[in-house]
Design a protein around this nucleic acid. Structure first.
Lengths: 350, 350
DNA sequence: CAGTTCAATGTTAGCGCTACCATTCGCGCC
DNA sequence: GGCGCGAATGGTAGCGCTAACATTGAACTG
């Protein structure tokens, strides 16, 4: 009956990782844990000599701070999540690359999620992301489910949507007008004297918006085949490919042999069009003007060089990073919505 | 002098996130926190009705578990980090895409780091990654510094290196022989009756290894320009581009006008070669055989269709994911080194 | 029917870090 | 001399979760 005092041996303690921890460093340097923490995070608050001793201890032990613990304690994970439909779509890559680069310089890390082009897995992805409590979320080119939007909102995490200009952003926004792109393309081609304008587009929502704006503008210019009909178009399934472009041009010419200009919803499609035209002996731009979208690196190097619509992905990525970092660090964001525009890069194909 | 008892009001508690926590769920469902935890992680340990109540509470509140806290407590972050030199290199993308997809199905998330093509930032990146205590790290196509290798080793985190077969892997390995690729390309082109073989290569270490193996094999076949010299080559800087390929072919033909076959270290270069050849009116493959590397999606759709060397990136990604998950879940890994090989996809250009 | 087992649940004590407040000490000021 | 101030450091109590062990009660055993 002496179940007391010394009798209760300490229960076996949880197995430690064995790794070096901050308090090991503190002990080595002869300071308290909190001072060691400050030495690493806000070194200006620590005296020179203390700093030196702590740094030496870090060096000696190869200590790497546990950011999970730090994030839990400080409620700042220094993680930013980005969601892309697919990595295979190079238009997003430039932005992601710039995003990563900018984040890294501020000490943030990028977590990447692929939503796929279907919305089914999207909610699960959103939960997985929110669960890590990132300091920000960058959404690229997806229409997220209502459920997902709600979750994001409720989480209170800064969100930047990109590649589009919606009237009802979840939070912040860096994008451009797809309608504007479609209209500008139509204006450009007709200013070049083209009279039978057509489009070849991926079937994603944004590409369709460009296509429709293009079609409407063509109508306004009075440039339709037989008065009043829409501009000819072929829709291919996303992701867009070179092969898709080739087939699409073949189909287009079957139905509308007199088309003299094509606006493609990606440079891949445009490359396919160039190749198919070449295979058929159609001269470009004499017989057919071709215009791409995205201004991929290869556009300038094709023969003929491809006229394309440039979206400054680097700027999108940088801007998104800056918006998120500002919010994460509690600075107010003056312009939560940013239209970065687009520009036509005129080369030889149109 | 009564600084005692009731006098010490509870110090102001740390500001809570305001978010729903597991114990909120537990309270709502009338169980203890640990039971709620089990309901979410190992539902088979919880009775049907308890499970239902907990699920209802989760549903009602929109609770999303804090994986930082979970990772800290369980020492399993369910995060896997991948390091790529650059996202702009599409060869890696296929593997990354497959990696993400496979990880997601097992409940893991991908964290992405870009090392750039220079090693300077690499160590900082490695530390940032280790700091998050991922359950695994996948390295794609980099030669990491000795310092970095040591850190990785010391961290005890499972590591998979990919895209190469080194005799001294840090841990696990999924790759193929670059030497084998170079030799196979030389064999293939000479089997096609080509006699003046050349290469156009990026300047990264692996591409150079392919190039050298190719050159040696050419020597063995006795196919050099003027007895004993190496196979002609042009080296372009990474990342490889279409424009780089065009210029390289121009240079190559300037110096060695009788070259009749080119092995390119990427499909981008090969596309550039195709375009430059077309611009110069060189017929392919009659006058010049062209072979790419990577078998990018566009290769089949070019005109002429591009012969290329296929690396099964999807399989690399899946294998890497499986290796890491196995290790993370404590299962033994029978084959820590996996050679996934390569294959020549013969099309029209060679 | 005491003894064993097992399924379901609970208690406690951290994981490694940082927020919050407190303390100490030297310095300049009136 | 007393006071205020700011720089440097420390103590304590969590952050939200789960490992490790403890407890309970019902079902089963011989």
């Amino acid at each position: 009956m002496n179940m007391q005092a010394d009798d209760r041996r300490p229960r076996r303690s949880r197995k430690k990782n064995g790794g070096v921890t901050l308090s090991d460093i503190a002990k080595l340097a002869g300071v308290s844990a909190i001072t060691a923490s400050r030495a690493l995070n806000t070194p200006e608050q620590v005296s020179e000599e203390t700093l030196a001793r702590i740094r030496a201890a870090v060096e000696r032990t190869g200590y790497v701070p546990n950011l999970l613990a730090g994030g839990l304690a400080s409620n700042r994970s220094r993680l930013v999540a980005a969601v892309v439909p697919s990595l295979a779509t190079p238009v997003f890559l430039e932005a992601i690359e710039a995003l990563t680069a900018t984040l890294v310089t501020y000490g943030y890390q990028l977590m990447l999620g692929q939503s796929g082009y279907n919305n089914s897995r999207e909610d699960a992805l959103i939960d997985a992301i929110i669960g890590r409590r990132p300091d920000g979320i960058v959404l690229t080119g997806i229409l997220h489910s209502e459920q997902g939007r709600k979750r994001l909102h409720a989480s209170g995490i800064p969100v930047v949507e990109t590649w589009d200009l919606t009237p009802t952003p979840i939070d912040m926004l860096v994008g451009f007008s797809h309608q504007g792109v479609g209209e500008a393309a139509a204006d450009f081609l007709s200013s070049k004297g083209r009279r039978r304008l057509a489009t070849i587009s991926g079937d994603d929502e944004r590409a369709q918006r460009r296509r429709k704006a293009f079609g409407r503008r063509v109508l306004q210019h009075g440039l339709t085949e037989e008065g009043g009909a829409e501009a000819p178009d072929v829709v291919v399934s996303t992701p867009t490919t070179v092969g898709g472009g080739r087939q699409a041009l073949a189909r287009l010419l079957d139905i509308h042999p007199d088309v003299d200009a094509v606006f493609c919803s990606s440079d891949w499609l445009a490359l396919g069009v160039l190749i198919e035209a070449q295979a058929r002996g159609l001269s470009i731009p004499a017989r057919l003007a071709v215009m791409g979208f995205g201004d991929h690196a290869f556009a300038a190097d094709l023969h003929p060089a491809l006229t394309s619509m440039r979206i400054d992905g680097t700027r999108i990525g940088q801007t998104a990073a800056r918006l998120i970092i500002a919010r994460a660090e509690g600075r107010p964001v003056a312009e939560p919505v940013c239209d970065i525009g687009f520009s036509i890069i005129e080369r030889d194909s149109a």
